[in-house]
């Protein structure tokens, strides 16, 4: 799950980025309108978090441009202008959600998660595969009723696989969605994390849920 955070306030962007990363999202940062535009058009994001008052190009212009050019990522608008008109205008221009500043971190994260779910046509915040349960809201994973502790990266990978259940997920897909622009790791790191995940989820349980398709990638069982 990769998120583009467009915010020019240093402290805010740093804190939000950290919070999102702790929630298992890969976060790219943009501090100006033009930078955000370049990044949004050049990479695949699940959600874009957009501040409206930005240097160079303002948020609403970016929003219009992206929607006009057919970008379908979900957009959460963050703004200090919290009047009804601003909200309506933002939503009408193609935003998916609107969060006026100042906001609580928990609400922000919940809205981001909701947008991610929506992006994968999932209504239930708890993903269930066989006897595996992933509570995306509480960030808790259980298998056969037993709670399993996962690092944010592992959680993120599992969530990504679950959202694409029954489909083959390539290493580059995983890499693109789970690692931000500043990660120097190659796609080999995906194999390492898959191994970690298997150790935690499949090792003591049957049947194994994470399957390997040689030459293609990985897949989690469809049912």
């Amino acid at each position: 799950m990769k998120i583009l955070l467009v915010e020019d306030h240093k402290l805010l962007s740093r804190s939000l980025k950290q919070a999102l990363e702790e929630d298992g999202f890969a976060v790219d940062l943009a501090v100006s309108g033009d930078e955000a535009d370049v990044k949004a058009r050049g990479s695949i994001y699940d959600v874009v978090i957009l501040d409206l008052m930005l240097p160079k190009i303002d948020g609403l212009t970016l929003l219009k441009g992206w929607r006009k050019d057919g970008f379908t990522f979900h957009i959460l608008v963050l703004t200090a202008m919290g009047t009804l008109e601003d909200k309506v205008q933002g939503l009408n221009l193609g935003a998916d959600d609107y969060l006026p500043k100042p906001f609580e971190l928990t609400e922000f994260l919940a809205r981001v998660r909701a947008l991610v779910r929506r992006g994968h046509q999932a209504k239930d915040p708890i993903l269930r595969i066989h006897d595996l349960e992933i509570d995306t809201g509480a960030r808790v994973v259980r298998r056969a009723g037993k709670e399993i502790y996962l690092t944010p990266r592992e959680f993120s990978l599992l969530r990504f696989l679950c959202y694409h259940r029954g489909k083959v997920v390539t290493r580059s897909m995983v890499w693109e969605h789970l690692y931000d622009e500043n990660d120097d790791n190659t796609s080999n790191v995906v194999d390492v994390y898959i191994r970690y995940l298997r150790n935690k989820i499949d090792k003591n349980f049957t049947p194994p849920l994470i399957l390997t398709r040689w030459g293609e990638g990985y897949m989690i069982k469809g049912d």
Partner: peptide
């Protein structure tokens, strides 16, 4: 007004977010 809102609300949000983050775990 928007500017004032922005200038005050944005740092306020940043502080709130930072403190929330600090208290999260």
């Amino acid at each position: 007004t928007a500017d004032i809102s922005h200038e005050l609300r944005t740092p306020l949000s940043a502080m709130l977010a930072t403190l929330d983050l600090a208290l999260r775990k």
